[in-house]
Design a protein around this nucleic acid. Structure first.
Lengths: 260, 260
DNA sequence: TTAAAACTATGAACGTCATACACAGTACGT
DNA sequence: ACGTACTGTGTATGACGTTCATAGTTTTAA
C-alpha cells in the first residue's frame, strides 16, 4: 500500500521528492526559493503581479528556466498556496474548543494577510505537507470527544471554510489591509449606503430595511472581529452540542464500540 | 439620499440602468444576451472557454463590439455571477429553519451546477439585483426571531459561505458532475488512498489514522449530501441556540426595545 | 585523460488573449 | 436633407504562458 499510485508530479515536488540529478551542472534554484519569491511578489502586488517572467527575474534567471522546477504556472500557484502556511499551533493543553477557535482565527488572519490566497486555494482539496499538518492538528484536537473520523473531518472542513468565507467577506468589503486595488467599494459603511440608495424597498423589503437601519455604519464595527467571533461561536456551539449528543449516546447504548 | 454616489458603471448596467441611446443605429445586443451566452459557454467549457472572442462569436459580433456593453472582462464575470442566480424561493409558510436549509441547499446546488462560479464569486460582496434578492429573502425569513439586523446579516453571510465551502469541497474532490477537467484526484476514495500512502504517521498521526480507517472509502459516501446536511445542521443548531437566547433576554429584561 | 552522457539555463518563436483606436456605416433629430 | 451620435469592424499592440532547439556545464565511464 505504498504510493503505488503515480502522484501528480506537483505533489511529489511539494513533498520534497524532487528527483536529485546526479549528472550535469548543479541546479541554481530549488522549489523553496521560487516559491518564496512568488509569494513575496503576490504579497506586494497581488496575484496580478505574479507572472513567470516576474518570478524568474526576481530569482535571477530567465522565465523559461522555471519550467525545470515546476510543470506550469498552475502548479506554482498550488505550491504557493501550501507554502504560505506556517506551522500550526499545537493542541496540547488546550480544550478542543479553545484550540479550534485559535486554529480558525489564525487561518483567517493568514488569508487576510495574503489576500491573493482567496483567488487560489479554492479548487482541489489540500495535498501539500503544510496544509495537511493543519488538518492533522484539528483532528488531533478533537481526540477524546467521541466524534468519529468522518465527523472530525467534517468539523475541520467546515471551520476552514468559515475562515475562508469570513476572510473573503472582510477583504471584499474593504475591511482588511487597505490595498490600493480596483475595488470601488471602500468599507462597510459605504457598502451599506450604496445598497440603501440602490434598493427598491418594495422588492427588497428586508434587506432595504436593514441597510437603512444603519447597521453598516459602525465604521470598523461591522465585518470585524466581533462578527468573526459571532459566526465562529455559532459553529462551535453546534459542534459542542454534537459532542454532547455523542457522549450521551455512548454512555447509554454500547459499552464498547469503535468510536474511532 | 438618492444615489448621490456615482456607482461603478457595471453596477448601473446590472440594474438595467444602461443609457438608452436616442440616436444612431439600434444596438444589436443587450446585456442579457451577452451574459447568457457567456454563461452557456462557461457551463459547457468552464471559465477557460470564456474569452471575449468566444462570447462575441457566439452572439454573432466581433470581439471588440462587446466593449460597447461592458467595461472589461472582469465586469462580464461580475455580471455573470449575478446572472446565474434564479429567483429565490419565498419564505412564506415555512419556519426560518426549514427555509434557510432550503435556501442554503439551493445555493450549493447552483454552485455545483455552475462550478465556474467557484472561481469567480469570491471577491467583493454582491451588488447585483439577483443575489441581493436572495439575501433579502434570508433576512425576511429571520423576521420575528428576535435577532437584530446585524445578526441576521451575519447569519445569512455565514450560510452563504457554507454553501460555497461545501460546493468547493465537493467539486474539488470530484464528487460533483464528472467534468473532464485537469483534476488528478477523482473521488473521495482515491483522495483518501493517496493521503494514506503519502503521510508519515509520526508527523501526521491523527490525519493518517483517519485516512487509514477507511472513512473515505464510502464511494459516494463522503462529501455527499449527508455531509452537507451535517455541517448545515451544525450551523442551524447554533443559530437556533442564539435565537433562543435572544428570546429569553427579551422576555426578561426590557418590555419594549428596538429589536429591529 | 578523454569522451560520452546527463542535465542546466537561454533566447527566439508561437499562439492566445484583453484591450485601444481609428474608421465606416446607420438611424434619429432637426 | 444634413449633421450628429452612436454602432460594429479591422487592425494593432503588448503581455503572457509555454515549446523547442541550442549552447554550456558537470559528472560518469572508458
Amino acid at each position: 500500500m505504498e504510493q503505488e499510485r503515480p502522484l501528480p508530479s506537483v505533489v511529489e515536488r511539494m513533498w520534497g521528492r524532487e528527483p536529485v540529478p546526479r549528472r550535469g551542472p548543479r541546479p541554481r534554484l530549488d522549489l523553496a526559493t521560487i516559491t518564496t519569491a512568488a509569494i513575496e511578489i503576490a504579497d506586494a502586488e497581488g496575484l496580478g503581479g505574479v507572472s513567470m517572467a516576474s518570478v524568474a527575474s526576481r530569482v535571477g534567471v530567465a522565465a523559461t528556466a522555471l519550467y525545470r522546477y515546476i510543470g506550469s504556472k498552475d502548479d506554482l500557484l498550488t505550491i504557493m498556496a501550501d507554502g504560505v502556511a506556517p506551522p500550526p499551533p499545537e493542541p496540547e493543553g488546550r480544550s478542543w474548543r479553545d484550540y479550534l477557535a485559535l486554529w480558525t482565527r489564525i487561518q483567517r488572519d493568514l488569508l487576510l494577510e495574503h489576500a491573493w490566497l482567496l483567488s487560489v486555494g479554492r479548487l482541489s482539496p489540500p495535498l501539500g505537507p503544510r496544509r495537511l499538518l493543519w488538518f492533522d492538528r484539528a483532528l488531533a484536537a478533537l481526540d477524546g470527544t467521541g466524534l468519529d473520523h468522518g465527523e472530525k473531518i467534517n468539523v475541520a472542513s467546515t471551520l476552514t471554510g468559515y475562515a475562508l468565507t469570513d476572510a473573503a467577506l472582510v477583504h471584499g468589503i474593504g475591511g482588511g489591509a487597505p490595498q490600493p486595488e480596483e475595488h470601488a467599494i471602500g468599507g462597510a459603511a459605504e457598502y451599506g449606503e450604496v445598497l440603501a440608495g440602490l434598493l427598491d424597498p418594495a422588492a427588497y423589503p428586508a434587506l432595504s430595511a436593514a441597510m437603512r437601519s444603519g447597521v453598516m455604519r459602525g465604521a470598523e464595527g461591522w465585518v470585524e472581529d466581533e462578527d468573526f467571533v459571532f459566526g465562529l461561536n455559532l459553529l462551535l456551539d453546534g459542534i459542542e452540542a454534537l459532542i454532547g449528543r455523542r457522549a450521551s449516546e455512548e454512555r447509554s447504548c454500547c459499552g464498547e464500540g469503535v468510536p474511532e
